[in-house]
């Protein structure tokens, strides 16, 4: 069977960076991680670390350690033995092993658990042992394969901060795999968004969120409204603005696409928090309220924009203030200057 799990992936990770591979399951992010670790071998391509050709080395010679999704702790060893395993395999002197293990136990706050069997500690503790075990040999790169996915919400939040702290304290480059966009946005220095075996966009969280390059990225990260428009002109190169004609016939300035796009019909991505409701006459977009959903802190308005696209707005509820809009009312939508993004597709 021929199946391209990964194709045309080109990524450069910087020293001491918290780099995240983000994508839905089956997008190839774990495969990419396994290629770096040495458990999969690509049919073509190359992986370099500090000028070292990783693909020519077996997994046990690569200065790269992995935190496995299932932790893969050795069940027949204690917590301390697990953490010391890598150093022992590197034939470090016993004294040094013991010292580093103690430091690692301290780093992940597991000192009291040192002599427990791995089956006798909780999921969150196993997670921390797996981290300590992978960090103990001081790898050049730490690979983390969805390490937080098995934890409950509260523990996951704690571990996110913990991971950031560990990365800052150790100065090791982290390559983190996740399908959780919120996790990626809060923790990463840079994110590579992947889909169907290829990288769709690489950039810092803010850039990925504010300037999604294409529909997949805009849709996968956060909530987005997609509306049709006509591209008239791109003003200036690169980070410039684009002039578009909206479905209401009004011209507007929005963010230019990241790649060349021909004038004509395009899709605009607009975040819900970048638009607000106004009188129909003042709106850049005009439409009809289809649904009003009350959420306590927010009220969501579902508006069918002229042209047929669905637009969801979030309105933060204020005390004493009533929303007088009802299903079927005509409304206008105002959009912040430069808030819309012309997509590459």
């Amino acid at each position: 069977m021929d199946f391209t799990a990964l194709g045309g992936v080109s990524i450069t990770v910087k020293d001491n960076e918290f780099f995240t591979l983000l994508g839905p399951s089956g997008c190839g992010k774990t495969t990419l991680l396994r290629v770096i670790a040495g458990f999969e071998y690509p049919t073509s391509g190359s992986v370099h670390l500090d000028g070292m050709d990783l693909l020519s080395l077996p997994p046990y010679r690569r200065p790269v350690n992995t935190v496995f999704q299932s932790y893969a702790l050795f069940p027949h060893m204690t917590v301390a033995e697990n953490i010391g395993f890598g150093l022992e395999m590197l034939n470090r002197p016993k004294k040094e092993v013991r010292k580093t293990v103690d430091e690692m136990l301290d780093l992940v706050r597991m000192t009291e658990m040192a002599d427990r069997k791995t089956s006798e500690i909780s999921g969150g503790q196993q997670q921390r042992v797996a981290l300590a075990r992978a960090l103990a040999p001081r790898p050049k790169v730490l690979l983390l394969d969805e390490p937080l996915s098995a934890l409950d919400y509260k523990l996951r939040k704690d571990m996110q901060l913990e991971l950031k702290r560990l990365q800052a304290e150790t100065g090791i480059t982290f390559i983190f795999v996740t399908h959780d966009q919120e996790e990626a946005l809060t923790m990463s220095d840079r994110i590579a968004v992947m889909n169907a075996g290829s990288v769709r966009q690489i950039g810092p969280p803010r850039e990925i969120y504010d300037h999604p390059a294409e529909r997949f990225v805009a849709d996968f990260i956060g909530e987005t409204n997609f509306v049709g428009a006509e591209l008239l002109e791109i003003e200036g190169e690169g980070e410039g603005f684009a002039r578009v004609r909206l479905s209401s016939g009004i011209e507007a300035h929005v963010q230019a696409p990241s790649g060349p796009v021909a004038n004509g019909p395009v899709t605009l991505a607009i975040r819900p928090e970048h638009a607000w409701l106004v009188e129909e006459a003042q709106g850049l977009l005009k439409g009809k309220v289809e649904n009003v959903v009350y959420f306590g802190t927010d009220t969501h308005f579902h508006v069918i924009v002229d042209g047929g696209d669905l637009f969801v707005l979030r309105h933060q509820n204020q005390p004493g203030q009533m929303q007088h809009l009802a299903v079927g009312d005509r409304v206008g939508l105002q959009i912040g200057r430069g808030a819309g993004q012309v997509l590459r597709d």
Binding site: G38, Y60, V64, T66, A72, L73, F85
Partner: peptide, 19 residues
């Protein structure tokens, strides 16, 4: 047996024989 344990062993610098 969990084959991932052997991978973890290799990942932690264990040669095939030592793993």
């Amino acid at each position: 047996m969990d084959k991932q344990l052997e991978q973890a062993g290799q990942d932690l610098y264990g040669t095939p024989w030592r793993v």
